[in-house]
């Protein structure tokens, strides 16, 4: 084996810790899906209590949207997919407070 005389590239280590971005899972209102249905879906997907699920459902109904979960991107994508599988209008939004 021949020793290389090529100089190694200079490396630096960033010692600061950067938190991963946070993402909101947002459910938007639609005039079709029943309140009982939306409540049931929230309970099924997020394991919410009846009270929490109804609170978010009412937010969707009255305010047009509700942030139902906040966290890492990968898990947020999974939740959005599951909500869309139940035909709810769900989107992913970067948490601006982050």
């Amino acid at each position: 084996m021949v020793a290389s005389e090529v100089a190694l590239p200079e490396t630096r280590t960033d010692e600061s810790t950067q938190l991963a971005d946070l993402w909101n899972v947002v459910v938007l209102n639609d005039p079709v899906n029943l309140m009982s249905y939306v409540t049931m879906v929230f309970k099924k997907i997020f394991g919410m209590s009846q009270e929490d699920a109804e609170k978010h459902m009412m937010e969707v109904h009255e305010l047009g949207r509700s942030v139902v979960w906040t966290g890492g991107r990968e898990k947020a994508e999974t939740y959005v997919y599951q909500l869309q599988e139940w035909h709810l209008n769900a989107i992913l939004q970067k948490n601006e407070a982050d």
Binding site: D30, V32, N33, Y37, M40, W86, H87
Partner: peptide, 12 residues
């Protein structure tokens, strides 16, 4: 339950 939602959305 899901199918009912899809059908109603399409009817709308």
């Amino acid at each position: 339950i899901k199918a009912c939602s899809a059908i109603r959305l399409k009817l709308r």
